[in-house]
Simulated assay, not measured.
Amino acid sequence: MTEEKNIMEVLFEKLDVKSKDLHDENGQSYIENLGLALEEIYTNQRDLLEQSTLQERRKAFQFAYLSLLKEEVIQPNHQMTPDSIGFILSYLVNLFNKNKKELNIVDIASGTGHLSATINEQNQEKKVMHHLVEVDPVLQRLSIHLANFLEIPFDVYPQDAIMPLPLEEADVIVGDLPVGYYPVDERSKEMKLGFSEGHSYSHYLLLEQAVTATRPGGYVFLIVPTKLFEGEEVKQLQKYIATETEMQAFLNFPNSLFKTEQSRKSLLILQKKDPGNTKSVEVLLANIPDFKAQTQLQTFLAEVDEWMKENHSL
């Protein structure tokens, strides 16, 4: 006798099968068709959504996305932020904003919207308004469908996140930053972290955009290359961070999440300076343990809590 499928498995299979069937019919990419499959369920199968929790829906979407990646090669910037990274980031967003009942969160270069969905799931006791900035039209549409599927509010801004943003005074900015060179030199030269010659680093410019769009005293949580503070142009970056922000933490994600040491990522946490209110802190530098090592993970979280008490007495 087969075990009855749980609601998450049912949703995953429906999304997976529908996306692949639609791909065979219309020839569009699997990612585009996943958006249409989400639409089919939230429009015509509301009973399924009503039986499921936010986490079950998000996980069904995540597994469907990962399943479709086996069917087609996608560009690196279409990769989804792994759950373990999303959970740590969400936990820290909550910790740094413990006393806030409402949060305005901007997700810069938001991709599928999965990182914002994870943050929403982990901060359900707060009223969170999500603003997503994404240049890729396929990912823009997918994140809108995901918001409807999850029944959480996303405002999606369809634009290049390095161009001037129609946003300011965010409480929190998050981002899983794409790494590379930015081709629009005219825009780079208007920015403090643009290079005087040649193409500038897109991840430097996105970091500057994040700080600019944050309210004084607000926080920036960016997933960046672990080697961010290496290289010829790093003095320019260090000067900008020291001038505009109070650096809070640089936390290295576990090696096991990445194929190579070169591709390893870290979480950079900054607080935008607010004269008279923000103060410099002892920067928290640490390696985040593997999620499977529960004891070490609990020790790490306890150390973060202790650091918060010493540096941010609430």
Rank of each mutant, 00 (worst) to 15 (best):
Y204D: 13
N33D: 05
F96Y: 15
G217P: 04
D155I: 12
T53F: 04
M247I: 07
F12Y: 15
L103D: 09
Q271V: 03
M1Y: 11
G194V: 05
W307V: 06
N148I: 00
H199K: 15
P275G: 09
P158I: 00
L92F: 14
Y65T: 01
A170C: 06
A249Y: 07
I85W: 03
M247D: 01
T53R: 08
S110Y: 08
E4M: 09
E232A: 10
I173Y: 04
K265T: 06
S143G: 13
D160M: 10
L206I: 08
G180Q: 12
L206A: 07
Q238F: 00
Q51G: 03
L92K: 05
R58H: 11
A37N: 08
G86R: 03
A147Y: 11
R215E: 11
H114G: 01
E208M: 07
M191W: 03
L297D: 00
E282Y: 04
A213C: 12
T53K: 07
D47Y: 10
N26H: 08
L251A: 06
H114D: 10
I108N: 05
L139P: 00
K272R: 14
V106F: 04
Q79H: 13
P254I: 11
F96V: 11
S196E: 13
V138R: 11
V172A: 09
H312Y: 15
I144H: 06
E50D: 14
Q62Y: 15
G231T: 04
F291Y: 14
M308K: 14
L284D: 02
